[in-house]
Design a protein around this nucleic acid. Structure first.
Lengths: 140, 140
DNA sequence: CCTACATCCTCTAGCGACTAGAGGTGCAAG
DNA sequence: CTTGCACCTCTAGTCGCTAGAGGATGTAGG
């Protein structure tokens, strides 16, 4: 058995060292065995689990959603309906967020374009912020 | 002078009561005068300021950016270059975020579509999460 | 074997922008 | 006068880490 230190686990999974310890502390990752000198010694499976978590985090899944996804992964004979539901919910969130950010972008563009680069009292950025009624797009 | 209570200030500005107190505590809003019984009494100008803050927050500006925007608003003879720069920076952020979310959306769609609604060991959602190499889009 | 240095350990506190709750006071209507 | 809501302050919690203190371990070179 080659021992994988936390540093190497971090490098291989792309999760930072303190974050690995954090995941262990919240029970997302099982506590690994320890060396004589009390240092963590990870298994290859832990690296996979960390990579899974990292990827899910990059996709914006919350820790609790990931916890559910991981329990599903741990028991591959279950129905994947929950995984499907979680992913679908996340998709809806992302679509909503894109819509709202797109409206926002239009708003910001109007602000920036309208700015005459003069003094504040003619500045459209400040003006639009002060008066919501000037919003051209129903972003909120 | 009609006194505006914190509750009415909240209703009129769309900022929640505890959040109004929070803004005061971090110096975003000047501490208002108090009634005999130590209750806050706001001016109409405070409502405008709160509405400004709320709108800026909805547009995703950070508190420190809003602090700068507010000092600009307080002195309308200044150049609006800073306001312009802040808005432009925010626009760049928003555009970046939209791009990344759009890639994410494609990823999630692939996951959800591929899901045969069977057991976990055939589930594409879990599979893709476990193996970053299966990502079709360079979202991260 | 000793030293230097990177890496590891635990623990606590901090980030942003609030939000929730405890425990108490003020105020207007019935 | 009492009911009941709105107000007050203060502390602690949220999420997902991140930073730092202060110390122990592991490894490579001399």
């Amino acid at each position: 058995m080659k021992k994988i230190t936390i540093g190497e686990a971090a490098r291989r999974s792309g999760v930072k060292v303190p974050t690995v310890r954090y995941y262990e502390s919240i029970g997302l990752l099982a506590a690994p065995s320890r060396s004589e000198g009390n240092q963590r010694s990870f298994e290859p499976a832990d690296i996979n689990r960390l990579a899974f978590i990292r990827h899910a985090r990059e996709l914006g899944f919350e820790i609790e959603a990931i916890r559910t996804l991981l329990t599903l992964q741990d028991d591959p004979h279950q129905s994947c309906a929950s995984a499907d539901a979680i992913a679908k919910a996340r998709l809806v969130e992302v679509e909503q967020r894109i819509r709202s950010l797109t409206a926002l972008k239009a708003e910001l563009e109007t602000m920036v374009e309208g700015c005459g680069h003069g003094r504040v009292d003619q500045c459209r950025v400040i003006e639009v912020l002060a008066d919501h009624g000037q919003c051209t797009h129903p972003h909120h």
